[in-house]
Design a protein around this nucleic acid. Structure first.
Lengths: 157, 157
DNA sequence: CTTCAAATTGATATGTTATAACATCTTTAA
DNA sequence: TTAAAGATGTTATAACATATCAATTTGAAG
């Protein structure tokens, strides 16, 4: 899913570059830099935070610098936008062209992406019942992740 | 669901006012005006479009005027925000405290809200499998509504 | 190797969405 | 009647995103 599970940062970047090549595109330095920041982040990152990070190396970077890279990464399936937070996360499951279920922790802000084909099928069915044909979907769930639930319950009776 | 089915605009507004009273709140003129605009709109409306509409009656209205009303309406369940479009829709099913599935037509921009308890249960289950407890969810589906699909297929062989 | 076209990046400006902060007015209940 | 809570007025600014056009890089054709 979205979190760098078994692969290292470098391995992820290499795999991403290969994926781009396969698509007839290129993971340029700027795109690679943004993806690298997203992969390294524990949760999601905002465009202007990415910009600030990039400006440390390259002070002339401007908003279009980062938004262009983000547009590219999202189009390539290498990142997702969290619409409800105006934030972005890396996606390591880029070979599959879908946008999964995003579990966003209200407390620690980490994001876990999960996939449920049955759920998606049901959604498409529901839509079809109204004559609606689905092109894309965005499912964002807010709540508390396992870690934060544990921390919360610690101080209690 | 979200569309004013059987009730007239006035009836909807009256029902909304009663709902607010029940909650110990008030549907003030400004809130009523914004809700009225949302109810009358075929699809969703953006905050600054609402503002422009309100300024026709009341030229001194400013962004907080409309954002405050929207915050109130969303909190009361009388409207929903479409995160992926930064837009707002009225919700006539305000007595039920959930955010349903939003079917957003890419072409005519109308919005249909539907409810599927089974789908929601599945989502909560999926999340629970990762130790995640759900507080809120937002499901937005893009595609073509029945009408627009028909219009599209007309000119074809 | 050169040259052209396409893709990418640089740079500036501006558009769009949303909130902070503080003043004022209104309502309500003690 | 008056203090507290709620709602609105007003100004300013923060936060998010894109348009536009110039410059540069890349890669393929000649």
């Amino acid at each position: 899913m979205n979190t760098p599970t078994s692969l290292s940062l470098e391995e992820n970047l290499t795999a991403a570059a290969q994926w781009c090549t396969k698509r007839g595109e290129k993971l340029t330095d700027q795109r690679r830099e943004v993806l690298s920041l997203l992969l390294a982040a524990p949760g999601s990152m905002k465009a202007y935070d990415l910009l600030a990070a990039i400006q440390k190396q390259k002070p002339t970077a401007a908003p279009p610098t980062v938004y262009r890279a983000l547009d590219f990464l999202v189009a390539a399936g290498l990142a997702h936008k969290l619409e409800s937070k105006n934030a972005f996360v890396a996606c390591c499951d880029f070979e599959h062209p879908h946008h999964g279920v995003m579990l966003i922790c209200d407390q620690c802000l980490t994001v876990k992406e999960l996939s449920d084909e049955t759920l998606e099928a049901r959604l498409i069915e529901d839509a079809a019942a109204y004559g609606f044909s689905v092109a894309a979907q965005d499912i964002e769930v807010k709540g508390l992740c396992a870690n934060c639930r544990n921390s919360e319950s610690e101080g209690k009776p």
